[in-house]
Simulated assay, not measured.
Amino acid sequence: MPISIDRFDDEPAEVLNLQEGTQPYQILQFLAEHSDQAFTQTELHEETGIKRGSVGGALSRLEDRGLVRHRGRYWAIAEDERLASYAAQIGASSSSTTDDYYGGE
Rank of each mutant, 00 (worst) to 15 (best):
residue 77 I to V: 15
residue 24 P to M: 08
residue 54 S to T: 09
residue 81 E to Y: 05
residue 6 D to I: 13
residue 11 E to C: 14
residue 100 D to Q: 11
residue 66 G to K: 08
residue 29 Q to A: 10
residue 44 L to H: 08
residue 7 R to V: 14
residue 57 G to C: 03
residue 84 A to K: 14
residue 84 A to E: 08
residue 77 I to R: 05
residue 22 T to Y: 06
residue 39 F to Y: 05
residue 34 H to W: 05
residue 102 Y to V: 15
residue 99 D to A: 05
residue 101 Y to F: 14
residue 105 E to G: 15
residue 9 D to G: 12
residue 83 L to N: 11
residue 101 Y to M: 08
residue 6 D to K: 14
residue 16 L to P: 10
residue 8 F to S: 09
residue 16 L to S: 04
residue 68 V to P: 12
residue 83 L to D: 02
residue 4 S to V: 04
residue 92 A to Y: 01
residue 60 S to P: 02
residue 65 R to V: 07
residue 63 E to V: 13
residue 77 I to H: 02
residue 16 L to Q: 05
residue 48 T to H: 05
residue 25 Y to N: 04
residue 36 D to V: 13
residue 94 S to F: 01
residue 1 M to K: 11
residue 15 V to D: 01
residue 85 S to Y: 02
residue 78 A to V: 10
residue 23 Q to K: 14
residue 90 I to D: 00
residue 89 Q to G: 09
residue 98 T to E: 00
residue 43 E to V: 11
residue 75 W to M: 01
residue 2 P to L: 09
residue 66 G to M: 06
residue 95 S to V: 02
residue 90 I to Q: 12
residue 32 A to V: 00
residue 15 V to M: 10
residue 30 F to N: 00
residue 59 L to I: 12
residue 73 R to F: 05
residue 41 Q to R: 11
residue 65 R to S: 10
residue 47 E to R: 15
residue 81 E to C: 06
residue 83 L to A: 13
residue 67 L to E: 02
residue 30 F to A: 01
residue 32 A to L: 01
residue 5 I to M: 04
residue 69 R to P: 06
residue 76 A to K: 11
